[in-house]
Amino acid sequence: MQKPIFEINGLTKIYGSGEVEVRALNGVDMTLYEGEMAVLLGPSGSGKSTLLNIVGGLDQATSGKVLFDGRPLTALNERELTRYRREHVGFVFQFYNLIPSLTARENVALVTEISRAPMSPDEALAMVNLSDRATHFPAQLSGGEQQRIAIARAIAKRPEVLLCDEPTGALDSKTGILVLEALSTINRELGTTAAIITHNVGIREIANRVFYFKDGKIEDMQVNDHPISPSKVSW
């Protein structure tokens, strides 16, 4: 396949110590490639989110190595991690995390203002089909719309990777599909690598590869040669 974007070796994350020690990640090896869409499946506490947080520069690993585009992420300090997030990563969370005091367009612009070569906020909103909602405040939007604004905000800076932690977790099937379609469009059109955490097994079918997590390890990995369109996902 293509060039690897993340190379993860022996990644371990331990919370607490002694008797209350929790191994959230227990020696994970994994590679993500440029432009691929990966789905991370597994029960709660299996380590998916911890992995995503470390890869996204939100958390530090206890041991192991993460290379981003050949550069070690695990060696970066706080300031460099902030810069890494600012320039290379887009995040989408379960609860959208929009700024309630800013309109949809302003929420997107918040990120484009500090990016090097962003698309315009309107362009980003068009990609998620929400141009007509540009001047609405989050409180005036439905959950699905809010999540799509969050996606527009995440991709507006043209990040190399898009990390989505349960993006459809709070949504019904109809709006969930709209959100997945937005993600899929972006993956296809911009070539952005996407890693999506979900509890919804059906979603695995839109991915190129599916990773199964259990007890802080990758238990299994499946390659999906023929990903389907989100509209065909059985919820």
């Binding site: 997030r85 600012r86 995040f91 995390n97 700024i99 918040l110 905000r153």
Partner: peptide, 16 residues
């Protein structure tokens, strides 16, 4: 807190 944390996630520095 969420707003401000979100900003940090998007890559805003502590100062910002």
């Amino acid at each position: 807190a969420r707003e401000l944390a979100s900003l940090r996630v998007f890559g805003f520095t502590r100062g910002e």
